[in-house]
Design a protein around this nucleic acid. Sequence first.
DNA 1: TGTCAATCATTTACTTGGTGAACGATTGAC
DNA 2: GTCAATCGTTCACCAAGTAAATGATTGACA
Lengths: 149, 149
Amino acid sequence: MAVVKNVALTETAAFGLGTVGALVAQRFADLIAPLDLKPKHVGLLTLLSSSGAASQLDMARAMGVAPSLVVRIADHLERLAAIDRVRDPDDRRRQTLTLTKRGRELLATCTEITEYLEEEILDGMSASERRALRSALRHVAENLGPATD
Amino acid sequence: MAVVKNVALTETAAFGLGTVGALVAQRFADLIAPLDLKPKHVGLLTLLSSSGAASQLDMARAMGVAPSLVVRIADHLERLAAIDRVRDPDDRRRQTLTLTKRGRELLATCTEITEYLEEEILDGMSASERRALRSALRHVAENLGPATD
DNA sequence: TGTCAATCATTTACTTGGTGAACGATTGAC
DNA sequence: GTCAATCGTTCACCAAGTAAATGATTGACA
């Protein structure tokens, strides 16, 4: 009876990253839910904040998501008055997205939430353990992300 | 213009765990797809392997998922001949699930795949870095899992 | 012993988050 | 000036999950 082998499975970093990642994502989703935001909304706001104005197609590519999905995400953010959506006068096919004041406020709140979550997650870990984790995550992201060549 | 602040966000362990976790999960899903398995199928097989025979409700609870979803998962695994599904003679409401030989074979293949993925993920990391990551993941899982009190 | 509430698996209808194809307006190459 | 390509939008669809209703079975108990 080869029962013992499976123990090893759940001890791998692969398994741990998958399950812990899902836990963290769910926790984040729960924390931002009262703001009427989903993770993808925050993703768009974050991208927009670091890139400045951008078209929906730009966002779709950066988020790795279909353009038709960006429509729905932007619809929602516009309803929340978090983004402005104006036709690019130089190319009237393009819809240019920009953060509004309200959008920056929401993003700031999400940043606070993330900082709170960060503490929750890393509670009880030493500074060097935290550094090691963040560094390992960067390493793994590089290993898995040949998509970003 | 408070643009610089967002950089910090994407540097947190929270953010990293979320995104890297999703990458790993997707990679795993891609690797098992040729076996006609999804992550939840492997989850059920793994649980079954470590717990021995179990009812569908047991599995639903252990997986944190609705019983009606377990029906579909078990349907599929039964179609693959990976599990046996027999009415418990002592309580004919219960459906007892057990791994078949084929199920153990599939699970063994998934274990190999996980080991392969583990190497892909940790490529270029030292033994102590790997140990630190696995330990940190356990730590985070404990911090987030007061559900398992 | 017979009734009745609870339990397990299942089916069904529904929601959510995602895709891709078709379409309309617009652009730009030629 | 025409015509293919591009951008955003809508639409129909798919996958994965839930919850509620149903049927069979069980067990408590008057």
